[in-house]
Design a protein around this nucleic acid. Structure first.
Lengths: 218, 218
DNA sequence: CACCGTATCGTACAATGTACGAAAGCACTA
DNA sequence: TAGTGCTTTCGTACATTGTACGATACGGTG
């Protein structure tokens, strides 16, 4: 039992505590490390106890995705749209790189939670209030979110976990085509990606500016 | 046994046959329906037999993702870059919507196969040959792929499977905020998304053109 | 005390990936 | 024919997962 030692009072379970702990566990051990059993253990409880607060694991995943959305900067309706969209995009990317596992969950989550809905609503409202037509709003929203999610997806796919440099990761792949196939990848790899100061994350700003420059209220 | 009936000759297993069958199964039953057991059954074989051709399930997933990449139109180095990028983007989106499960696998696949590498190489080569600087190439590539993957991700997340209209799917969500919260989502939903002819997929062209218009070789 | 709704948990089962090693098929030789 | 050694197939078994079902503990009210 978790509450064996005298001072270790047992905090009662709750839906919030379950989701919060699930979020922390996913951050620590990745989404694969988030199982009902490990979660229960982390909570000082037993697997089946969680099901009193949650119908199934799907709901847990829905819940922590909504928690993640809750961390994203909420655009302020009425403010200048370009600045708000810029800040929102940066915030979203930052949050998603803090919770990399969430990117893979964006697909398949068909039950948006309140934080997710509030976020979408504020974003749409900011555009509309800035004079965007309905159609322009739909266009802008689809474009911005596609870019943000897609960039996050690529960033997660890069196996750059921790201190290891890009070179270490790229080396084994490069061997695969040192034979002269894929010369253009070779060129980019040596000329850009493996250069000392290169950080793929910096590419985000370029695309973001390009997109915002191209958007118009109608 | 599969080869019980007289005429049903047993086709020998092979890595190619395993991967091809896995791809077909994922298309038919979704990625969750692709288990070692169902795959073996589909092949008229037994679970453990597959492991002679494949180290583990990860390799199967890597393999079918590479098969998917193999279906994407390969840009022709030397041709006009804008047209080639346009065709490639459309092709990629079309392929990913034909294999929706693949979008979720793009993350986590860290072992690109030959078709994937060839695709990337041809894309980079097309840009470089059209006069793009190394940096401009990196920018363009990150931007285009982010948009394409992200759009595919959003498209997959929409639960629009089959004949059911957008209205049917949106209705239960709308109830959630019929109470007056989320007014801007309400507005977009009724004014755009639920309109008769609306198709989210059409948004793809808008963003694609905007991005291509914004790209420059240096 | 009895009673009852709330909250916790023990046991058990089905589905999954796969380790281990046996067996079957096949080609070739003595 | 019988033996030898490789390639290919597969049977059994196990650990891990989500969770169904029903029992138990708990805390307040009569």
């Amino acid at each position: 039992m978790a509450a064996r030692t005298g001072t270790n009072e047992r905090i009662p379970l709750s839906r919030e505590r379950v989701l919060q702990c699930a979020l922390a566990l996913a951050d620590r051990d990745g989404i694969a490390g988030l199982t009902i059993r490990t979660l229960a253990q982390e909570l000082g409880s037993r697997p089946m106890s969680l099901y009193y607060y949650v119908a199934n694991k799907e709901q847990i995943l829905d819940g922590i995705v909504d928690l993640v959305f809750g961390e994203v900067h909420l655009p302020v309706i009425g403010n200048a749209w370009r600045e708000e969209m810029l800040v929102r995009a940066r915030s979203m990317r930052e949050v998603l790189s803090r919770h990399p596992w969430a990117v893979g969950l964006l697909e398949s989550r068909t039950h948006p939670g309140p934080a997710t809905l509030r976020h979408h609503d504020a974003t749409l409202g900011t555009l509309r209030s800035a004079g965007f037509t309905l159609r322009a709003t739909a266009h802008a929203y689809a474009l911005l979110d596609s870019y943000i999610y897609g960039f996050a997806l690529q960033e997660v796919a890069l196996p750059l976990s921790g201190a290891e440099s890009v070179a270490d990761v790229a080396a084994p792949i490069m061997e695969q085509f040192a034979g002269g196939q894929y010369p253009w990848m070779m060129e980019i790899a040596t000329g850009i990606v493996m250069q000392p100061g290169y950080d793929f994350g910096d590419e985000f700003e370029y695309g973001l500016e390009l997109i915002l420059d191209g958007l118009h209220p109608h």
